[in-house]
């Protein structure tokens, strides 16, 4: 049984979501290859080749792949699929975008967002906003799976796999127009050890940044937000933590002015330590918080800044 992992490329390297997906893949097979896609990805492929226990890195280059266009990724992977019993990708927005497409073409049931590999054909995944975990067995010979990165440890470095070029498909009937990426020097939400998240209580974009940014900088943290804060335009869409946003599991998660709706909890309840600052003592967030502070954030956050020194 051989497994293909589609890498999550980040410029000249690959994100640790790739390493975590490799860990999940190694539970299925010792023969794990990594596919790195996108024009000018040679350096990223070399980085992937250093992941411990990876057998081989495949490098597929085309402009369409640089933008992760689903039709191009699908065609590229389909051309390789014969050689593999399973294809895995991290459950990022890219993985979620192209993996079901690949599954449909292979006539297999995709398995989304696994948090555990029980055996070769059996996996556990959250459903109902994480209020239940289902363990499912697939009858498909080929498996197409997305992996929740926070549920797996990152594979180490120290590998020396070879890099082999494969054909990269061109764009299909959807063309890239433009992108607007949020620039930040802070750690990425999914990878940060500390996350500070703000909710509707912050009241405006100016206030959100005035309160959250200095705290994040002091803690070396990433900034997240509730849906309400994103919908209201206080924070970019990419900050949303939850059932339908990002899933995070940092060592420390600090929720500020967030009520704790189930959809929000779905994205952060696996954090090691949860702190909640909320002026309503009955806010549901306190039911999952290790440390709850019933306070107005307007006084609590400055106090916290001082106490952190």
């Amino acid at each position: 049984m051989a497994v293909l992992v589609i890498a999550d490329r980040d410029g000249d390297t690959v994100r640790d979501t790739t390493h975590k997906t490799v860990t999940a893949a190694l539970k299925l097979s010792g023969d794990v290859d990594v596919l790195v896609i996108g024009q000018g990805s040679r350096a990223a492929a070399d980085a992937a080749a250093k992941i411990a226990r990876v057998r081989k890195v495949l490098l597929a280059e085309s402009d369409a792949l640089s933008h992760q266009l689903a039709e191009a990724v699908e065609a590229t992977v389909l051309a390789l699929a014969d050689g593999y019993d399973a294809v895995l990708a991290p459950a990022t927005t890219d993985g979620k975008n192209y993996m079901p497409r690949i599954a449909a073409k292979l006539d297999v049931a995709p398995i989304s967002d696994i948090v555990e590999v029980v055996s070769n054909d059996t996996f556990t995944r959250p459903i109902y906003a994480g209020n239940a975990l289902e363990t499912i067995q697939t009858a498909d010979a080929k498996k197409v799976i997305t992996v929740r990165p926070t549920a797996f440890d990152a594979a180490g470095e120290g590998g020396s796999a070879s890099v082999e070029a494969v054909a990269g498909a061109d764009a299909g009937k959807a063309a890239f127009v433009s992108e607007e990426m949020v620039k930040s020097d802070r750690p990425e939400l999914g990878a940060a050890k500390i996350v500070v998240s703000g909710g509707r209580a912050l009241g405006s974009a100016e206030e959100f940044h005035a309160v959250m940014d200095p705290l994040a900088d002091k803690l070396g943290a990433a900034v997240g937000a509730s849906r309400a804060a994103v919908d209201a335009g206080y924070a970019p869409n990419d900050y949303q933590v939850g059932q339908t946003g990002k899933v995070v599991a940092p060592g420390l998660y600090i929720a500020i002015g967030i009520s704790g709706a189930i959809q929000h909890l779905a994205g952060m309840k696996d954090s090691k330590i949860i702190v909640a600052i909320n002026k309503d003592p009955d806010a549901p967030i306190f039911q999952v918080a290790d440390f709850g502070w019933v306070a107005d954030y307007k006084t609590a956050v400055p106090e916290l800044m001082t106490a952190l020194g």
């Binding site: 239940a132 975990l133 697939t138 440390f291």
Partner: peptide, 17 residues
């Protein structure tokens, strides 16, 4: 294609201090 073997409750977090 899939058989559900079981559906369980995730580990519960309890309120701290």
């Amino acid at each position: 294609r899939l058989t559900v073997q079981k559906v369980t409750e995730p580990p519960k977090r309890s309120a701290g201090v």
